[in-house]
């Protein structure tokens, strides 16, 4: 099937139509930060200001806290009732290529060996409509991470902002089916495709921040015990969890019970390797010192994940750089390792 396009002023109608059959999420800043929220006509202005969400897309699939099951103690003992995400299908519009890629990266882990039903169920029910970046941020370095701001193979449909119009390109079968059912779109021409290509190239060229990932695994392994380096780069770190929680690929979690033995929920929630308690055992803690925790985070992303899944667990979205209260910068840390 060919590509389609739509006039931007027709988007409201399109979203209204789509909302009849399923929930449509778009970027909003109604909460005081930018996140995906249910579409309504009042938050249709995002195309004008939207760069990326504050909290990454992962939160829609792996929320900061979610119920796993309910336990209830009756006369016959404990009964357990599984709580799975709702089956309803969801369209998420405005997904940036870095976040779509991140979702794929953590999806590999959630599907590996033991299936994680919570993540996978949500993923199965979601259709991602990507929105390529024409104007990457100062903090973006996706181009160094095997990606490009305007392109994505990890969404179902990919949109490119062409000025007055949005171009829709099919990426997956799911996307193709959706596109064929969308009304109010017109066929796009070869000219549109080449214009989109130019926009993408231009966007790619705007990316200033770069890291070198060649032989990075080996380089990191060689410097694993370089305590001086890690102590230096971690000195200003405040050991909060911001970088991990705004990271689209950080996926560590904890499991807790509601404090009620008779009737309660088991929940899982985000956790962070930056917290000393993360690895604290009764007798010891292998990462009590801050520099060891900082080292763990970067090694996990740039060495271990690559060893295990063949991909670095960083997509260059730049959120950690932007949100860190003391401006710890992953690109400086990796560049520092490469120059050792």
């Amino acid at each position: 099937m060919g590509n389609k396009k739509i006039k931007k002023d027709q988007l409201n109608t399109l979203f209204n139509e789509l909302s009849k059959d399923c929930s449509v999420l778009v970027p909003t800043r109604s909460k005081g930060y930018i996140g995906f929220d249910l579409w309504d006509e009042n938050n249709g202005d995002f195309i004008g200001w939207y760069k990326n969400t504050t909290i990454p897309l992962k939160a829609n699939f792996f929320p900061k806290v979610e119920d796993m099951f309910r336990f209830n103690k009756g006369e016959g003992g404990y009964e357990i009732k599984e709580i799975l995400p709702e089956e309803e299908s969801q369209i998420i519009f405005g997904v940036r290529p870095c976040d779509a890629r991140a979702l794929k990266i953590i999806g590999t882990l959630f599907a590996d060996t033991y299936k994680d039903p919570y993540f996978l169920k949500r993923r199965e029910n979601a259709i991602l409509i990507g929105l390529g970046c024409n104007e990457p941020c100062d903090t973006c370095f996706c181009a160094s991470m095997g990606a490009s701001p305007g392109e994505s193979q990890d969404v179902d449909l990919l949109c490119t902002d062409m000025g007055d119009e949005l171009l829709f390109e099919t990426v997956s079968k799911k996307g193709e089916d959706l596109l064929s059912n969308m009304r109010g779109l017109s066929d796009s021409s070869d000219g549109d495709s080449s214009k989109a290509k130019e926009l993408r190239e231009a966007a790619n060229n705007k990316i200033q921040r770069k890291i070198d990932t060649s032989n990075l695994k080996e380089k990191m392994r060689a410097n694993f015990e370089n305590r001086e380096y890690w102590e230096n780069v971690s000195m200003k770190c405040m050991s909060c969890g911001i970088c991990t929680y705004v990271c689209p690929t950080c996926h560590c979690f904890d499991i807790h019970d509601e404090n009620n033995k008779k009737d309660g929920l088991r929940v899982r929630n985000w956790d962070s390797c930056k917290f000393p308690l993360f690895t604290r055992m009764p007798m010891e803690n292998p990462r009590h010192e801050k520099w060891r925790r900082v080292r763990q985070r970067y090694h996990h992303k740039f060495e271990y994940y690559d060893m295990n899944f063949g991909v670095i667990a960083c997509t260059g979205c730049g959120r950690c750089i932007r949100e860190c209260p003391v401006n710890v910068d992953v690109t400086q840390i990796i560049t520092g390792i490469q120059s050792l």
Partner: peptide, 16 residues
């Protein structure tokens, strides 16, 4: 330290 037991929660990651 472990939590999930199935290689997802990240707690017991050491080396790869």
């Amino acid at each position: 330290k472990m939590k999930c037991g199935i290689g997802k929660c990240g707690r017991c990651n050491i080396g790869n």
